[in-house]
């Protein structure tokens, strides 16, 4: 309550137009305008950017319901209802890309959480903090490089003729990695975790760092072993963070890391069965096959399901932890 009062009085004091304000309503509005006008000005560049980058493309979802013909323009192109979607879901591609997107996300989320927590627990156990401070940036470094660099690294290991793996382990019968789809679920999982493990464990390290040390001290006095301390103190206290991360990741299960799934397999067409995700399909249909209809159908499908999932995940987050809800 006192906060509101002080705000009001501050508004009064701050305005140079205080005296005028009292006289009539018109000049009050003018004063208000003079104060807020610069703030509107400040918003202009950002609003223009939001309109171009975010809001115009939102109207672009209408493209999915049109048969786009660029020679007569997008606006004049005829409406075709849901036929783009029908064509898309009649193909085998639709099933493959949805299956891959969901399956990879399931593995990345569940295994990812276990690995991140394990690393965070280990990092917290290192008694020499100096060494821990050196290790932490090293394990985070892989997330600093681009997907293109990542593809070079993977190529160095898997190149059929020169690659380290073939030369070291399969010198007599080299495997053509970039043409054999069945290996890629494992390759992509390993590459993904190589890149994100350090980064994703940071959030749990921060949570562990925030746990009251006296809890462990008390447990020690009661003779609890280290395992018991982790099981009965650390993990239960990490649970809210785990739930939060899990729920937030629900909002993203229809999205995938385009660089990982497109550039790391070097766009190889022989690997579609295990590397195609919705994002790579949208790109390929748009820029490699010039099939705007299919591309926009997949893209809009992803956007709408993604939107619903974000709402769902946010509603769940809100239930357990209001502070971390987006809205």
């Amino acid at each position: 309550m006192p906060k509101i009062r002080s705000e009001k009085s501050s508004e009064g004091h701050s305005s140079q137009y205080e005296n005028i304000l009292k006289k009539n309503k018109k000049s009050k509005r003018l004063a208000e305008f003079k104060k807020t006008f610069p703030m509107y000005l400040m918003l202009i560049p950002g609003v223009i950017y939001l309109v171009c980058n975010n809001y115009l493309p939102m109207f672009g979802i209408l493209i999915a319901f049109k048969k786009v013909n660029f020679s007569i323009g997008v606006l004049k192109s005829p409406w075709v209802g849901f036929s783009n979607f029908r064509f898309l879901f009649e193909t085998k591609d639709a099933w493959i890309m949805i299956r891959n997107t969901l399956a990879y996300n399931a593995v990345f989320i569940i295994l990812g959480m276990a690995i991140a927590i394990f690393v965070a627990l280990c990092m917290a156990e290192i008694s020499n903090r100096g060494i821990a401070k050196i290790i932490q940036p090293i394990i985070c470094f892989p997330s600093m490089v681009s997907a293109v660099i990542l593809s070079f690294i993977v190529y160095a290991f898997l190149s059929t003729t020169y690659g380290f793996v073939n030369r070291t382990f399969f010198p007599d019968s080299p495997i053509n990695w970039y043409a054999t789809a069945k290996y890629w679920p494992f390759i992509l999982t390993i590459v993904h975790f190589w890149q994100v493990t350090g980064q994703s464990s940071i959030i749990y390290m921060a949570s562990i760092g925030g746990i009251d040390k006296e809890l462990y001290e008390a447990a020690r006095i009661d003779g609890a072993s280290k395992f018991k301390q982790i099981w009965h103190i650390t993990l239960p206290l990490l649970k809210p963070m785990m739930t939060l991360m899990l729920l937030l990741s629900i909002g993203r299960i229809f999205n995938s890391d385009f660089g990982l799934f497109y550039q790391v397999p070097l766009g190889s067409g022989l690997l579609y069965n295990t590397t195609q995700t919705i994002d790579t399909y949208v790109y390929r249909a748009l820029l490699e096959l010039n099939n705007v209809g299919m591309s926009s159908a997949a893209s809009v499908f992803q956007a709408i399901i993604g939107f619903l999932l974000v709402i769902l995940s946010n509603a769940l987050v809100r239930k357990i932890d209001k502070e971390n809800a987006l809205f």
Partner: peptide, 11 residues
């Protein structure tokens, strides 16, 4: 929360 996707942005 909501975006038009790559195809729409690209166009």
């Amino acid at each position: 929360m909501f975006n038009g996707g790559l195809t729409a942005s690209y166009i």
